[in-house]
C-alpha cells in the first residue's frame, strides 16, 4: 500500500512559500482513516485520525474501583493543529510498517507529529 506521511509543524516554523506550477497530485483517504504518529521520550504515541485520544494502556483502579476517569491522552496537549510542513509518499506492507516509518520521521524532526494517510488508489 502507499501512504502519505504529512509532517505537521507550528506556524512559527514556516518559511515563505512562493508560487509554483502544478506537477501532479494524489488523492488521500479521509481523516477518519488517518493515524497520527509522534515520538516522545523514545515512545511511539498513536492517535486515531479524528478525536483526541482518551488514553491507552492499563488504567489504575482506585480503592473500590469506582473511579474510571481516563484523563486526556498524549494528543490533548497538541494545541493548534499547525500546518502541513511536508509530505512523503512511502510504500509499506501495512499500517504497522507505515507507523514505523512515520516514527522514524518524527524522531528525526524532534518529535513532530506525523500523520499517516492512506493514498486513495
Amino acid at each position: 500500500m502507499r501512504y502519505a506521511l504529512l509532517v505537521r509543524a507550528q506556524p512559527a516554523d514556516a518559511d515563505g512559500t512562493g508560487p509554483g506550477r502544478m506537477h501532479g497530485g494524489i488523492w488521500l483517504r479521509p481523516a477518519a482513516d488517518a493515524t497520527t504518529v509522534r515520538v516522545e521520550a523514545d515512545e511511539i504515541l498513536l492517535d486515531d485520525g479524528l478525536l483526541p485520544s482518551r488514553g491507552d494502556g492499563p488504567f489504575p483502579d482506585l480503592g473500590d474501583g469506582r473511579s474510571t476517569d481516563l484523563g486526556d491522552g498524549p494528543f490533548a496537549d497538541r494545541g493548534p493543529a499547525g500546518y502541513v510542513a511536508g509530505l512523503d509518499l512511502v510504500e509499506a506492507a501495512d499500517l504497522d510498517e507505515a507507523i514505523a516509518l512515520a516514527a522514524a520521521h518524527s524522531r528525526a524532526c524532534g518529535g513532530a507529529a506525523v500523520e499517516v494517510r492512506p493514498v486513495w488508489e
Binding site: 488517518a34 499500517l95 504497522d96
Partner: peptide, 21 residues
C-alpha cells in the same frame, strides 16, 4: 462501520503482532 472501514482502508494487518511490537 467507521472502524471496519479504517481497518480496510488504512491497511491495519490481521495478525498477531511480530515480537518487537
Amino acid at each position: 462501520v467507521r472502524a471496519k472501514r479504517k481497518i480496510r482502508n488504512a491497511g491495519i494487518p490481521y495478525r498477531v503482532p511480530p515480537a518487537h511490537l
